[in-house]
Amino acid sequence: MKPLPTLLLVFAGVHALIADGTIEGKLSVESMKPSPSRPGYLPSPTKQPVLKPESAPAIVYLERDDGVYPRTKTNETVRIRQSGYQFRPSMVAIQTGTKVDFPNLDEEFHNVFSCSKAKHFDLGRFRKEEASPEVLFNKPGVVKIYCEIHQHMRCFVVVLDTPWFVKTDAEGKFSLNNIPPGDYSLKIFQPSERLIQQRVTVTDGQTNTVNLTR
């Protein structure tokens, strides 16, 4: 893959609250690698200028040992637009069983596809204002998505069984709310595809703090 922004986890303060606990933390950005594509730098010209890709955040999520999760996030349809010859957002986390649509907002064709193990699909050529096909993601895993026509375009869909996930904000902050007490693996998926993980215990009435390093 092309270089992507990476995050160095400098500090993660994890506070677990009772019953409907909240886990919070902060990831500090160490450095930003060059974006996968420089605007205007393309092997074939496009009708409109290529805009900058979005900075990809990290995905923070909790997994339970028994692998049993409530299916609380599968009713929504997540939207990944193609705009300015980029996928927006460029990284998404969803729960297995979620549908994603891919509206094309550019004046030219896009052809969204993936060959990832977790999901194979090819939407063919479709244009602006055409009804976007919906894709059901029913297997957990990381799905790398591309455009067959504009090869610089790429996007991650992180498909998770757990409903307890969140994207960090631009400053690297995250907050996971309404987490039942128990033992979890706290995992962080970074744009570089590196995975950081740490065992955490959410205990009634206590705050647990963990430090995670790469």
Partner: peptide, 17 residues
């Protein structure tokens, strides 16, 4: 090689910005 990781890594190393 289906996973693509090998190619991604190689691609990373052959770019200069």
């Amino acid at each position: 090689l289906r996973g693509g990781g090998f190619f991604d890594t190689l691609d990373d190393k052959t770019r200069f910005d």
